[in-house]
Lab assay of single mutants.
Amino acid sequence: MTTFKLIINGKTLKGEITIEAVDAAEAEKIFKQYANDNGIDGEWTYDDATKTFTVTE
């Protein structure tokens, strides 16, 4: 398992979430479901060097 981080730069929600996932594809699926569940819709980026996803509304 690898640790992945999501940085949320939303209009109403900001913060960071860290999860353990098998790979970046699994982490992205989990993070996008979390964002969808919380009404966050924005532009996604991923930095493989730091294993960090960012979503900006």
Score class of each variant (00 low, 15 high):
Ala35Phe: 04
Leu6Lys: 00
Ile30Tyr: 10
Glu16Leu: 07
Glu26Trp: 13
Ala24Tyr: 12
Glu43Val: 13
Ile19Phe: 12
Lys29Trp: 03
Gly39Tyr: 11
Asn36Arg: 10
Gln33Ile: 13
Lys51Arg: 08
Ile40Asn: 12
Gly10Ile: 14
Phe53Ala: 02
Gly39Leu: 07
Ile19Leu: 05
Val55Ala: 03
Asn9Lys: 12
Phe31Trp: 12
Thr45His: 06
Lys29Asn: 04
Asn9Asp: 07
Ala35Gln: 06
Thr52Asp: 05
Glu28Lys: 06
Ile19Tyr: 14
Tyr34Asn: 06
Asn38Lys: 13
Ile8Gly: 03
Gln33His: 12
Glu16Val: 06
Ile8Ala: 06
Thr2Ala: 07
Thr18His: 05
Lys5Arg: 10
Phe4Cys: 01
Thr45Glu: 15
Asp41Leu: 08
Val55Gln: 01
Asp41Met: 05
Met1Cys: 05
Tyr46Asn: 01
Ile30Thr: 08
Asp47Val: 09
Ala49Gln: 10
Asp41Val: 15
Ile19Gln: 06
Thr2Gln: 11
Ile19Ser: 04
Tyr34Ser: 13
Lys14Asp: 07
Ala21Tyr: 02
Asp37His: 10
Gly39Phe: 09
Met1Glu: 11
Trp44Gln: 01
Asp23Ile: 09
Ala25Ser: 15
Glu57Ala: 03
Leu13Pro: 03
Lys11Arg: 03
Val55Leu: 10
Ile17Ala: 06
Gly10Cys: 01
Tyr46Arg: 07
Val55Pro: 00
Phe53Glu: 00
Thr45Lys: 11
Met1Ile: 12
Thr45Tyr: 03
Asp41Gln: 08
Asp48Asn: 05
Asp37Arg: 11
Asn36Gly: 15
Thr50Ile: 05
Thr3Pro: 10
Gly10Gln: 09
Trp44Arg: 00
Tyr46Gln: 03
Thr56Pro: 01
Thr12Lys: 09
Lys5Asn: 03
Gly15Trp: 07
Leu6Ala: 08
Phe4Val: 03
Thr54Ile: 14
Glu20Gln: 06
Asp41Tyr: 11
Gln33Met: 13
Lys29Pro: 14
Val22Phe: 11
Thr56Gly: 04
Ile40Thr: 05
Ala21Val: 08
Glu43Leu: 13
Ile30Arg: 09
Ala49His: 14
Ala35Lys: 04
Glu26Phe: 09
Ile17Trp: 01
Glu43Gly: 14
Glu20Asn: 04
Ala21His: 06
Gly15Tyr: 08
Ala35Thr: 15
Tyr46Leu: 08
